[in-house]
Amino acid sequence: MRVEIDEPKCVASGQCVVASPEVFDQRDEDGVVIVLDAAPAPALHDAVREAAAVCPAAAIRLVLE
């Protein structure tokens, strides 16, 4: 799984950080998402899928490899 961000869409809700803090963080200055791990381990996939699903701006795309 590869995590891709459509950064202009991000609204800095922080929902992804709540769902999957191992993979997502936010920039201090504007809250825009930071991907900590763009190729997360399988154990994290459920949480990452949850993060993508609850992103209010549909800014997280998961590419299955």
């Binding site: 800095a12 922080g14 950080v17 709540v18 936010q26 920039r27 201090d28 200055e29 809250g31």
Partner: peptide, 10 residues
């Protein structure tokens, strides 16, 4: 506000 501050309140 910085996201860390907001997250604590959330």
């Amino acid at each position: 506000l910085p996201p860390r501050v907001v997250r604590r309140w959330r």
